[in-house]
């Protein structure tokens, strides 16, 4: 694994004072805060900043890092020396074991064994306490909300190794996605968090991948429905493919482009289920054959129609 120069990450000198480190971190945290940042790699950068800050803002971790990191160059292949097993008690602060699990391999090699920061491991003695909850974000497709599909979810979580020392573990879970899930919701997997009495839960925050056809608003699905001019003018029953299966939608006579049709109850399932909102868009057939041109010409003669005229009223 590569050696990480945390001083470089925060842009501070190796002998920087705690206050300078704090200041540098805050400045960068403001820039890369994932909720507001316009930088494309904000989330990854924020993770790096948090990792560097977790080490440099903690006097014990910083001292251990300084001692161990002497002579290493950033990016150089790094392996902790044999017997590296930080002998000191870690005074938990700031970052949760959950967040630390998201840090780099370099971090977990150095500090993954230093003892956790959460309840249950405080004071060293193992007590019968409830295990910590773990968190992860999970990206689903719109279709997943419609029928209890199972998804494989890869996670990195804090876990004790065979000798009982805290470290990290990669886990793959097969999770049955509850029908009716929508973005922003949290799926709880009881007992899948840290061990304890009882074991903690695993909480999955749901996000949806962007879909080429559907937009999601709560439980409502929004999509564009293209219509031929005659379908809009005369009314029609048109098929619309939805994740839950095809439905047939009645377009009323005289439908106008830009207006919206609501199909109740066909959105993401639930109590109550969401609706499907169809943005009507009238698509004009191309005049690319002599016969098509003829049609348009006769329409132009037969209709006393000025599309700008309707705008003026």
């Amino acid at each position: 694994m590569q050696f990480k120069d945390y001083y470089q990450t925060l842009g501070v000198a190796r002998d920087a004072k705690a206050d300078d480190i704090k200041k540098a971190f805050r400045k960068l945290a403001r820039k890369y805060h994932p909720d507001v940042s316009r930088e494309t790699d904000a989330e990854a950068r924020m993770k790096e900043l948090n990792e560097a800050n977790a080490v440099l803002s903690d006097p014990e971790k910083r001292a251990a890092y300084d001692q161990l990191g002497k002579g290493w160059q950033p990016g150089q292949d790094f392996r902790a020396p044999p017997g590296w097993d930080a002998p000191f008690e870690h005074a938990g602060r700031g970052y949760s074991p959950d967040e630390e699990a998201g840090f780099s391999d370099f971090f977990s090699e150095l500090f993954g064994r230093m003892g956790g920061t959460g309840p249950g491991r405080r004071g060293g003695a193992r007590t019968a306490r409830r295990g910590e909850d773990h968190h992860a974000r999970v990206l689903l497709d719109v279709e997943d909300a419609f029928g209890g599909v199972s998804r494989q979810i890869a996670l990195r979580i804090p876990a004790a190794d065979a000798s009982g020392r805290p470290g990290y573990q990669d886990r793959t879970l097969n999770v049955k996605i509850p029908r009716g899930v929508c973005p922003g919701q949290v799926i709880r997997l009881a007992g899948q968090g840290a061990p304890g009495a009882p074991a903690g839960d695993l909480l999955l925050e749901v996000e949806f991948r962007p879909h080429p056809r559907f937009r999601v608003d709560g439980r409502d699905l929004l999509l564009t429905l293209p219509l031929a001019p005659w379908e809009a003018a005369l009314g029609a029953v048109v098929p619309v493919a939805l994740p839950g299966g095809e439905v047939r939608v009645r377009v009323p006579e005289g439908a106008r482009g830009g207006s919206q049709l609501r199909v109740r109850g066909k959105g993401i399932p639930g109590e109550p289920p969401g609706d499907v909102l169809l943005d009507l868009r009238i698509v004009v057939p191309p005049a690319d054959t002599p016969r098509a041109r003829e049609f348009y010409e006769s329409m132009s003669r037969e209709f006393a129609f000025d599309p700008r005229g309707t705008e003026r009223t």
Binding site: D133, N174, R188, L189, Q192
Partner: peptide, 18 residues
């Protein structure tokens, strides 16, 4: 039996301790 069943939090509220 390897498949975990999830529960939506809207249907199951969290307590203060949770």
């Amino acid at each position: 039996r390897d498949i975990l069943e999830g529960q939506l939090l809207e249907e199951a509220w969290l307590t203060l301790d949770q």
